[in-house]
Amino acid sequence: MILYLLCFILLLIGLYGVITKRDLIKIILSLAIMEYAANLFLVLFAYRKGGTYPILEEGREIAMMVDPLPQALVLTSIVIELGITAMLVALAVRLYQKYNTFDITKIRRLAG
């Protein structure tokens, strides 16, 4: 239970960072923290007490393996996050070129 709680706190730290930080790069990093917390959640849900890694090898039983499906989901979501993070970094670089700053309080052409 304590693990889930810590994981949730990690998620909240990420959310806090996204909401309060002004620097574009810090926002991207906070998003990454949040996404890692979500991935950790998924892996934790799959954990089974005393379970081993879910790889089929010669002479291993399937019964004691942890659930492999959430691990596959986590791999997929990591790939997606890679794409989104690359996109955000590219946008941040372009914003820096246009505004000469990473501070979101100074990037305010859209308001209202």
Partner: peptide, 16 residues
């Protein structure tokens, strides 16, 4: 794909 992500970002830097 991954190579092009970093490659494109480095092109951005030069333009800047």
């Amino acid at each position: 794909g991954l190579f092009f992500v970093v490659w494109t970002l480095s092109i951005f830097h030069i333009e800047e």
